[in-house]
Every structure is written in C-alpha cells, then in structure tokens.
C-alpha cells in the first residue's frame, strides 16, 4: 500500500504527472475573476469564498480522469488487481494520492489567492479549513467516477457529468462554511455537515469504487 502511494506521488510530481495542472487552473480562475467582475472590492469580498470553492472544485475535476485511466492504459491496473492488495485499498490509496497531489496544494494556495479577491479577514481561516475538510471528499468521489469510466476512451466528459451532481453537497456546505466564516457568522452547522459528507464518502465509497472497478476490468 505504501509502495503504491509513493509510486503514485512520484509519478504525480515527475514530468507529465499533472501536478501543476489543477494548481495553475485554480490560479487562472481566481486571477481572472476580478478582471471580469470589475474593481468593486465590496462585491469581490462578498463572492470571494464562493469563487475560491468553485475554482478548487473545477481544478479538482480537471485531473480526475488521470486517477485510474493511466494505470488502465498501460496494463498496471490488471496487474494490481492480481496483486495481494485489496481493491478497496487500491482505490483508497489512489484517492489519497490524488488528494495529496491536487487537493492539498489547492488548500495551501487558497489563502494567497484570497488576497486577490479581497477576502475579508476572518475568511482566510474558514476558507482554508473548509477546503481542507472538503477536498478529500472531492478526491474520493472523483475516484468513484474514474472507476465507473475506466474502460472508456476519452471518458472525461462522462466522468465530469457523473461526478458533478455528487460534488454539489460538498460545494454547498463547503462554500457555506467559507461564506459564513468570512461574514463572521456561526459556522458549526455547515461545518459538521461538510465533515459528515467527507467522512461518510471516505468510509463508504471505496467499496463502491472497488466493486465497479472489478466489473470494469472483466
């Protein structure tokens, strides 16, 4: 398991691994929003939490088809399936590797990009906290989507369509935590909902991902 994680992380940061892709996309979105909205700092401050969450979600979506498709193309997924690793473990590690190479960098740069959007002071903490809590769910749900579409050539479009509705609850509660936090309101309710979604999908979805992957490998 550890070997699979180190291999995926190593592949992620080497050339062509797609490590910078999500990060660059997130940067582009948040840099361009002030230009398209106009220089109204009050308006920007109001939409900043939502823009940061939307940018992070779309950046995450961009790299989902790499989670399993690359391993499927070069045959290593078949070989992993016959290795002494449980399929549930393989998909969990794949999701974790995706989160470390895509989700975690987004969480870390979000405060810096908040400056560009005139995010109010208390918002920095809550945007970072909500992303930290919410992005693992995006990776786990994304891995499920990747498992569903693994045998399909150019399955990216189908993958996005399948995964987007599943992302909605995380987006709603994550952005709500960030919005309330930035406005200085109480955040406990959306935060616990967000945590519930994240821990729930981490606990349950690997079994679904493993089941559909087994069927897709036939």
């Amino acid at each position: 398991m550890i070997a699979l994680l180190t291999r995926d992380l190593r592949l992620g940061v080497r050339a062509g691994g797609g490590f910078g892709l999500g990060l660059a996309f997130f940067l582009i979105v948040t840099v361009l929003v002030p230009f398209s909205i106009g220089p109204e700092s009050a308006l920007l401050a109001r939409i900043a939490p939502g823009i940061l969450w939307l940018g992070a979600l779309l950046a995450c979506l961009l790299s989902l088809d790499r989670i399993l498709a690359l391993d499927w193309e070069d045959g290593s997924l078949d070989l992993l399936a016959t290795a002494p690793l449980p399929m549930e473990g393989i998909v969990s590690i794949k999701a974790l590797a995706h989160w470390i190479t895509t989700g975690l960098p987004l969480v870390l740069v979000a405060p810096a990009l908040g400056v560009l959007l005139n995010l109010p002071g208390p918002g920095y903490l809550w945007v970072t906290a909500s992303l930290l809590l919410g992005t693992p769910a995006l990776s786990v749900i994304g891995t499920f989507g990747a498992a569903l579409t693994v045998g399909i050539k150019r399955g990216g479009l189908l993958l996005s369509l399948l995964v987007l509705p599943l992302y909605v609850p995380t987006l709603i509660f994550g952005a709500e935590v960030a919005r309330r936090g930035a406005a200085g309101l109480e955040v406990v309710t959306p935060l616990t909902m967000l945590a519930g979604i994240t821990f729930g999908v981490i606990a349950l979805l690997p079994f679904a991902s493993a089941a559909v992957l087994r069927i897709n490998l036939r």
Binding site: R7, A15, D71, E73, D74, L79, T82
Partner: peptide, 18 residues
C-alpha cells in the same frame, strides 16, 4: 498466481529499477 498480460504495466517516468 502471477499474471502477465500483453501490456507490461510499466511506468514510463520511472526507472527500470524503480
């Protein structure tokens, strides 16, 4: 069982020993 298919399951960006 150790299975070897048509595809070798190699990662182009890793060295032979890796």
């Amino acid at each position: 069982i150790a299975y070897a298919a048509h595809a070798d399951g190699l990662k182009a960006m890793l060295s032979v020993s890796e």
